[in-house]
């Protein structure tokens, strides 16, 4: 699989994403936010970081960069787009995903390992997992509190588009296991077509034993299987 990682001024997980793609057997390439050379990739990753210093709102300015115009077109044509952390915020601002991410209810920047439950293994991003499996991945964000109007939330739930939820070690979702106040403990969602996924936790930082978790591998393996089913058989 050939994956483009978009770099914005302030991106800081671009190299993690690059490495994650290569660990999953793919080839990754960077595209600078000012450039319009997306080319013909199999997928695009919007990495984590603090694009444009998070000025105004996280992701608000990045969404207007030239590269994002191409990414939006790519996504509208069904191309797989993965937004991780700041990338999730950018995808929401760009209208690729519904809702928005506001300040953590604790008002603190969160940086710790967090348990997540795979709510749906029925997406191109999660086919390598089983539904209900509990994963551990790092979170690192100040604005990860997912909000959407009640109708949007109902739709997301009804259509199985809540892909990851914050849970405790035993896999239970509760107020205590919800670190940032996200509506319905939502940690990750997909768009209507299932080709755009956004999540606040970092699968790109959970790819190798030395990092403390390999639970993020499934996302990149799932994507690899989706784009070239023959290679991974």
């Amino acid at each position: 699989m050939r994956v483009v990682v978009v770099r914005f001024p302030g991106s800081n997980c671009d190299q993690d994403c690059h490495r994650a793609v290569e660990l999953a057997g793919g080839r990754a390439r960077y595209v600078w936010h000012r450039d319009r050379d997306l080319g013909d990739p199999d997928a695009v990753i919007l990495p984590g970081g603090f694009s444009y210093g998070d000025y105004l709102r996280a992701g608000a300015i990045a969404r207007f960069s030239p590269a994002m115009e191409d990414v939006v077109r790519f996504a509208r044509n069904g191309g797989p787009v993965l937004g991780i952390c700041n990338g999730f915020q950018i995808a929401c601002e760009a209208g690729l995903l519904p809702g928005a991410l506001i300040r953590n209810r604790t008002l603190r920047f969160h940086s710790f390992d967090q348990h997540l439950r795979v709510e749906s293994a029925d997406t191109m991003w999660t086919s390598a997992y089983e539904s209900g499996r509990v994963l551990s991945m790092p979170v690192a964000h100040g604005e990860g509190n997912y909000e959407a109007d009640p109708r949007t939330l109902e739709r997301l739930e009804g259509e199985g588009r809540v892909v990851f939820r914050y849970v405790d070690l035993r896999g239970q979702a509760s107020e205590e296991s919800n670190p940032n106040g996200s509506a319905r403990s939502i940690a990750g969602i997909v768009n209507e077509g299932g080709n755009v996924m956004g999540l606040m936790p970092h699968p790109d930082r959970a790819m190798e034993t030395v990092l403390g978790s390999v639970d993020g591998q499934g996302i990149f393996q799932s994507l690899a299987t989706h784009v070239s089913p023959v290679d991974t058989r």
Partner: peptide, 14 residues
């Protein structure tokens, strides 16, 4: 301003 009815963590802290 944050929309009425929506959680406003800084407002709550103040």
């Amino acid at each position: 301003t944050p929309r009425a009815g929506l959680l406003d963590p800084p407002g709550k802290a103040i």
